[in-house]
Design a protein around this nucleic acid. Sequence first.
DNA 1: TGACGATAGTTCGGCCACGAACTATAATTA
DNA 2: TAATTATAGTTCGTGGCCGAACTATCGTCA
Lengths: 152, 152
Amino acid sequence: MDSSLQGIIGQIARLRELANEWLGRELERRAIEGIQPAHGTVLAFLFKQQSPVPIKEIVDQVRRVKSTVTGMVNTLERHGYVRKIPSDDDGRVVYVELTEKGCALRADFDEISERLLSTVYGEMSGKDRESLARLLCQLEKNLRVSCHGGRA
Amino acid sequence: MDSSLQGIIGQIARLRELANEWLGRELERRAIEGIQPAHGTVLAFLFKQQSPVPIKEIVDQVRRVKSTVTGMVNTLERHGYVRKIPSDDDGRVVYVELTEKGCALRADFDEISERLLSTVYGEMSGKDRESLARLLCQLEKNLRVSCHGGRA
DNA sequence: TGACGATAGTTCGGCCACGAACTATAATTA
DNA sequence: TAATTATAGTTCGTGGCCGAACTATCGTCA
């Protein structure tokens, strides 16, 4: 029931898909291989770090279950964007760190983010952008309350 | 880059996930088994039919690639919500039709759709709902133009 | 009628995404 | 210190989603 097909939820779902599609094309256009739209949150987080981070940290930040993060990190590793380093102190943890190739994504990443924003907003006035953000926040709050009583 | 994490796209992505989460809980609460939020568009389409439809029709309506639809139809069939009937006239086509069990979903489906709508909107005024829809349409148009030059 | 191209579906491999089970290593507590 | 519990990651099975390749059938056209 991804839909409610008609109605606001369908609209939101479509929008999200269009954005993903746009990102896919942009990545392809720039010949960036092995990167999926979903990797965005992980990369954004890694860009902010100046030292290797445990996978656990990524899991907490990225709002994905650990098995999902394991998979994404492995994909990123296989494509050479990231390196895994087992901890010496704690035999359970594995650190993740961007490689050269991974760091090199940053410029594209920033450009793409900016371009997406300006594409999606187009000529929309600042006032309308604010209204939109506010209204969406409201929906988000409504759903969040109904889902988990406001937490998270 | 599902994200742009911050900004409108992230907000939309979160909203869509929350809606899916909400749907998941609702389906679980009603003990409806084997149904995924993504099946919503397929079911909505089947509810509107009074005779079996070729898979091709579903593909066109549901905005999913044929291999995806094949998968979903098979899942629905395995759970007994749907029946596949090879055509006599045309050896290539396979018709799909709701079973009793499938038809029985309709009431829940309608209720759930309505409840989701009222949950997500909450107390938002009619005027705001309209503004929101209008603004989202604008974003959708912007992206669509940028993606495929306005088609589709 | 026979070859060729279009059309309908399926299959396969690759990803994300989830939950449950499992491993291995701490940390805690009796 | 031994047993128990908690924590970090991985693995596995299910499913959506895609694109590409494949099969089978239908239409068309020579």
